[in-house]
Design a binder for these strands. Structure first.
Lengths: 211, 211
DNA sequence: TAAATACTGTAACAGTGTTAACTTAGTTTA
DNA sequence: TAAACTAAGTTAACACTGTTACAGTATTTA
């Protein structure tokens, strides 16, 4: 049975309304990302977001469960970009040690380029890495598994000293995270200095991995 | 001229009042440190401190300039303990590479033992490292200079590869900071795992420093 | 004794996240 | 077509936060 004219009108109307809702949701997200980048985690508030887009604060609660949900959605966008950049860097190098260095550099590059995203994703709300709802446990960091895999591969090939691949992966992660975290927390450590530190720590760790 | 009886009484009274004032100040500090350790940076509030010691919130402002001043004073106590532990570890080893490892271990040990202090001093309010008043610049981390000095010493002796000592020092700092920061931000990474990661990253960096 | 000083409390302001209750518009159903 | 329902928005309010202005009270000083 073909749809009647009434049905078509109603379908179109419903679709239009749904679109409007998505538009508002997207406006909230855009404003949130912009304001977050401007004011950082501490200075971010829902009322500012509402004001920015010309709605009352409570409207946000019709599109998100609350502040955490909104922030998590913003962070998820960051995790997506993050993963893309890391995978691209990984694909650019085939030899294990070179690949580890490339991933490490991409990691730091992301942190220095999007410091507020990094602050949200890995410092203030590192719990978001494990997902929003407490039981979720859907890992948002599959990109970091590449590190452990690459290290294991290097061990199998004999170019990386024997050991626990996961522990070495955590060590590498901690090293690059430390560089970015210090740069974000201490304005004294500017980008050039952070990059020099990153190069040094990557060189040292990778050299150490050789044995 | 000997003090009259009146003068002696007044002097005693003044001293007693001064003592009482210091007592209140100390009570504020103790309560602040305890509540901070319990609730962390985000959940810490002046009104809780006031309630804890049975004073109104405004009283705190007669003993400290505000929340920042109070937090900084708490942090300063942390910096003091931190410096003591690091110096002790440094004195326990004479050979440069062994000393670097000992300092690194002591650094992580401090972070894992006093996570809320660490959170305040190096994560949430890393600006306190440079002092409270903006122009101050009195470095609160002379203990970290030991690292650069030790590395320079190792280079002079030829047991550490040539390079910029300060950059290598920052790299080592970033590595241990990263371990502690991840442990504090991610409850998933428990103490044992953090210690294993710290051992690994120190081993790798120190091996890398050999050349 | 009178004036000055120091410490404390109450009340208030501006801001936060969040919830309840209400309006208004559009959709669905009887 | 009329009634019921749903969705998105509003305003008002609650319980917090850091901070400041002002008043009171006790003690010290002149």
């Amino acid at each position: 049975m073909n749809p009647t004219r009434d049905e078509r009108v109603r379908a179109g109307s419903r679709q239009r309304r749904e679109q409007q809702k998505q538009d508002v949701r997207q406006a909230i997200l855009d404003a949130a990302a912009a304001l977050f980048a401007e004011h950082g985690y501490q200075g971010f508030s829902l009322r500012q977001v509402a004001e920015q887009i010309g709605y009352s604060a409570t409207t946000i609660y019709h599109h998100f469960e609350g502040k955490d949900d909104l922030l998590f959605t913003v962070a998820d966008e960051g995790f997506s970009r993050f993963g893309t950049q890391l995978v691209a860097a990984s694909d650019g190098a085939s030899e294990p040690l070179a690949r580890l260095k490339a991933i490490g550099r991409a990691y730091v590059e992301f942190g220095l380029s999007y410091p507020t995203y990094y602050e949200l994703m890995f410092i203030e709300r590192a719990d978001f890495m494990l997902g929003y709802r407490v039981g979720e446990r859907k890992p948002r960091l599959g990109s970091l598994d590449i590190v452990a895999q690459t290290i294991q591969e290097g061990m199998d090939r004999g170019v990386i000293r024997p050991g626990v691949a996961a522990t070495y992966a955590n060590a590498l992660w901690a090293a690059v995270h430390g560089v970015v975290a210090m740069h974000i927390a201490l304005p004294v450590i500017d980008r050039a200095q952070a990059e020099a530190t990153a190069d040094a720590v990557l060189e040292l760790v990778v050299t150490g991995l050789k044995g």
